[in-house]
Design a protein around this nucleic acid. Sequence first.
DNA 1: CTCTTGACGCCGG
DNA 2: TCCGGCGCCAAGA
Length: 102
Amino acid sequence: MEPDEYSEAVLETVERIPPGKVLAYGDIAELIGRGGPRQVGRVMSLFGGGVPWWRVIRADGSPPRCDEVRAHEHWRAEGTPLRPDGRRVDMARARWNPDDPA
DNA sequence: CTCTTGACGCCGG
DNA sequence: TCCGGCGCCAAGA
């Protein structure tokens, strides 16, 4: 199975997210200007294995339902800003701004 | 064609 | 905080 053009756009964006930063599914959809959060999520479920999927999370900062444990491990290793409870990402601080010089 | 399912999002209660 | 409901859009049965 090979990614179609839309999926390519999603994966490209995900690969650009720097370590320690994250984007929400909806953020990606708006960045590429097509589809919605659910389409992005579908793409990740199909082809997310080849990209830093742990940097793509829900809008409320919680990790993908399939691999929460591994997501936490990556966040800890990258120093991703977490909320006081340590269970979710601090979106206010960790959200990646694409205009921010890479 | 309709109905159900999702690595979703937001508003209420 | 947890839960339910509705909107969303594409894919599969």
